[in-house]
Design a protein around this nucleic acid. Structure first.
Lengths: 145, 145
DNA sequence: CGCCAAATGTAGCCACGTCTACACTTTTGT
DNA sequence: ACAAAAGTGTAGACGTGGCTACATTTGGCG
């Protein structure tokens, strides 16, 4: 819902973080669905709308709209009453998102967060982890082997 | 926008994290504005709508709507054409949010994230940090004093 | 004091994510 | 093969956060 038709005018530095967070939020949904679809395809050979909806914790029309957006953005394809599939770009995004998710969870655990909380919190945190931060996380994890 | 009228039906464990993240999102805006108002009051003695809007990186009607919601939720008070003030609850929330923000930034820096990226990313991350995770962060920071 | 600029309020629009309700396919089971 | 069940599509409603445009109030300055 950020629709961001404009940008920053002349936003003070303080606002940068907020605008950034709002933008991230708009991408988060794409990332989550993309990863979920990729998971389903790997596990069941196909991604059914009903399964997507159930696993995402939403109703099927909501999932359908999300898939429509994925298609609009060139991340997925599907034909009526058939499953959903990812495009090359979608697959790449899924891989990137999955890697980031694992790194975030690992880092949280590494600094002492209980595994269960780490999994839940990571779902929200990961979308706000920039490349710079991700790199630092990886370096930290590597350094303590 | 989660309107969450119901909850989980019977969401699989997988969905828990997503629902949690969606709920957090709905609270994030309240937290951000509350903290911003608190900051302004401390720095300038009052929180003007225009300043709030500018610092949040939005237009003034958007800030006005947010303030209206804060008032609805009992976090702030204001009279027409006067500044905005926090209720006791609002002040408490601001303090909690500020502490959490600082801990998150400190932790990011502690694991090697550049200060600038840490500040920006923290703005999005903090809203998804549960009490359990926050506690772990504090323990980690203390342990390496 | 009066007037104009700046601040605030209000109305109306759009996009989004969510839901319910209902229509229509596809699959399944007897 | 056909009816019932399951899956999918589509319409319509809501709340929210964003914006622009316009109305109103404050406040400062000549």
């Amino acid at each position: 819902m950020p629709q961001d038709t404009h940008g920053d005018h002349e936003a003070p530095a303080r606002a940068e973080g907020f605008n950034h967070a709002r933008t991230a939020q708009s991408v988060a949904l794409l990332e989550d669905y993309t990863e979920m679809i990729d998971d389903l395809i790997h596990e069941h050979g196909e991604a059914r709308l009903t399964d997507i909806a159930r696993l995402m914790g939403v109703t099927h029309p909501t999932a359908a709209k999300a898939v429509a957006r994925l298609k609009r953005e060139g991340l997925a394809v599907s034909r009526p009453y058939r499953g959903v599939f990812l495009t090359e770009i979608g697959v790449a995004m899924a891989a990137r998102v999955r890697l980031r998710h694992r790194v975030v969870v690992d880092l949280l655990v590494a600094v002492g967060v209980p595994a269960e909380a780490a999994e839940i919190d990571a779902e929200g945190i990961e979308h706000h982890v920039s490349d710079a931060t991700l790199g630092a996380f990886e370096a930290f994890l590597k350094a303590r082997g």
